[in-house]
Amino acid sequence: MTQRVANVPVNAVSPDPTATVRLHVNGEEVERTVSVRMLLSDFLRHELGLTGTHVGCEHGVCGACTVMIDGRAGRSCLTLAVQANGHEIRTVESLAGPEGDLHPVQEAFKDCHALQCGYCTPGMIMNVVSHLEADGDLDLTDEGIRDMLSGNLCRCTGYLNIVSAVRRAAELTEQSHTEQAGG
């Protein structure tokens, strides 16, 4: 069987245009020259070695690649690295302390057995951290938490333990705020 070579016109003016981007990632300034079509998810994983950000569907449905962009959760697979130029990115690697002490949301996920294979977990956690850090009251009813998690898919747990973990994380966060205010 012979196969015809596909003759697909490539629109770009130059072969693979590059740009130099400077980002704040987990508190550090990084500068790289990358292809303008590089996704932020690939930038974090391949350029910076931050493989905690997972890549699932690459079209914004699964939420595994969720990171914080300027303090709010966003899909790193739907953001180009050049779009993130000059912006502040936080990944799951930023959460635990230098001694490995877990962030309250990580602690809650561990306590409540809210993960099984763990693939969706970094995206879940960054989304939850973003919600907990946002101004305004959180709806911590089951329905409210499920709404919060609606953009993150998990194929293992059936979500029940994740819902419990979010509530627990909110309690832990509240406690630490109270302690800080008291002390």
Partner: peptide, 11 residues
Amino acid sequence: MKPPLFDYASP
């Protein structure tokens, strides 16, 4: 699942 080639402008 990666974007095709393009040029980028940031006016």
